Amino acid sequence: MTRSRRAVAGLVLLALVFALVFAGPVVSPWSWDGTDFAAFRAGPSAEHWLGTTESGRDVFAVTLRGARTSLLIGLAVAVISTGIAAAVGTVAGYAGGRLDRTLMWGVDLLIVLPPFLVVVLLAPRLDGGAPLLVPLLAAFMWMITARMVRALSASLRDREYVLAARFLGVGAPRVIVRHVLPQLASLLVVDASLNVSVAIVAESGLSYLGLGVRPPDVSLGTLIADGHGAAAASPWPFGFAAGLLVLIVLAVSLLGDGLRDVLDPTSGGAR
């Protein structure tokens, strides 16, 4: 990883973000759901480091809570979507035949569905908030990767070591796990890392529109939506949340691009 400056920069930025998000509430004098009834939309002070919201909540504490929610959603969506892509793609590519055609037909059907429209229609009916938002987002983020994994798995199916394992009577699941998936590790790692930023942006957009995380919980999207109307007079609630969102997406994107350079030198070479 040290061969790629972008990977190192992304990893350092992401580590700093995680340290701030998870360690910040420990040193903050206010909890994210606490209310100061003597300070509504107050400016930064020794008591409230970044001021307060219009409802009297500490901006520093509530924004770190929102960033943690967005990060956890992004990580969960990335893991689930990449896992589905790996499972469907490897099974289709290795098995071939009718199973391959059936799985790819299902993938093609999902690809042509407009994901934003489906999410907008389903999200208002999901009263569970973040726990149900994660599988909904993950359901529309794995199809392209599954097709790539399927093509690579089909090419690996005729490799000598795979044929040798099959001739020795090794079952298909074991061959996939021990001989196919390790060859796809670089693709899956990069895909998962880039999916984190995509999922965070998608969640923030839905939450901004009121279709994502529901009160009393918060995310970066809900905080940006709450603060943008008064951003000119009280910029701290909007600015801190928007700045953290940009920083998280930048860090994850740098890390993903750097990992692609390191794990797949043919994509552009290590830097």
Score class of each variant (00 low, 15 high):
residue 231 A to S: 11
residue 211 L to K: 03
residue 137 L to F: 05
residue 252 V to M: 15
residue 143 M to D: 03
residue 188 L to N: 02
residue 240 F to M: 11
residue 99 L to S: 06
residue 1 M to A: 15
residue 222 T to G: 09
residue 189 V to R: 10
residue 88 V to N: 00
residue 79 V to P: 02
residue 79 V to I: 14
residue 259 L to T: 05
residue 57 R to N: 10
residue 51 G to H: 14
residue 155 S to T: 15
residue 165 A to K: 06
residue 270 A to F: 05
residue 170 V to M: 13
residue 230 A to P: 00
residue 187 L to I: 08
residue 150 R to H: 10
residue 13 L to P: 03
residue 184 L to G: 03
residue 85 A to C: 07
residue 25 P to I: 01
residue 226 D to Q: 14
residue 188 L to M: 12
residue 135 P to V: 08
residue 140 F to A: 09
residue 99 L to D: 03
residue 147 R to Y: 09
residue 223 L to W: 06
residue 212 G to N: 08
residue 180 V to A: 12
residue 42 A to C: 07
residue 241 A to M: 05
residue 148 M to E: 14
residue 228 H to A: 08
residue 122 L to E: 03
residue 145 T to I: 15
residue 236 W to S: 13
residue 55 S to A: 11
residue 97 G to H: 06
residue 266 T to N: 07
residue 29 P to F: 06
residue 187 L to F: 12
residue 127 D to V: 09
residue 67 A to E: 13
residue 203 E to N: 06
residue 79 V to L: 15
residue 61 A to V: 05
residue 167 F to Y: 13
residue 124 P to C: 04
residue 17 V to C: 12
residue 19 A to R: 04
residue 179 H to R: 10
residue 58 D to A: 03
residue 25 P to Q: 12
residue 15 A to R: 05
residue 167 F to I: 11
residue 224 I to K: 07
residue 219 S to Y: 00
residue 117 L to D: 07
residue 44 P to D: 07
residue 82 T to P: 03
residue 30 W to Q: 05
residue 42 A to R: 09
residue 67 A to M: 12
residue 177 V to L: 15
residue 98 R to S: 12
residue 162 V to K: 14
residue 182 P to T: 09
residue 222 T to S: 15
residue 24 G to M: 11
residue 219 S to W: 00
residue 241 A to S: 13
residue 114 P to S: 11
residue 169 G to E: 05
residue 174 R to N: 07
residue 186 S to I: 02
residue 179 H to A: 07
residue 215 P to E: 06
residue 3 R to A: 10
residue 63 T to E: 04
residue 56 G to V: 13
residue 67 A to F: 04
residue 179 H to C: 08
residue 155 S to D: 14
residue 188 L to H: 10
residue 210 G to V: 01
residue 123 A to R: 08
residue 252 V to D: 01
residue 18 F to I: 15
residue 227 G to V: 04
residue 111 I to T: 14
residue 76 A to E: 02
residue 225 A to F: 04
residue 151 A to P: 00
residue 91 V to W: 07
residue 154 A to S: 15
residue 89 G to I: 02
residue 263 L to P: 00
residue 126 L to C: 00
residue 9 A to K: 10
residue 215 P to F: 10
residue 197 S to L: 02
residue 10 G to V: 12
residue 180 V to N: 13
residue 181 L to H: 06
residue 151 A to D: 15
residue 248 I to M: 15
residue 160 E to C: 03
residue 16 L to D: 01
residue 190 V to Y: 09
residue 178 R to C: 07
residue 146 A to K: 03
residue 46 A to D: 10
residue 16 L to P: 00
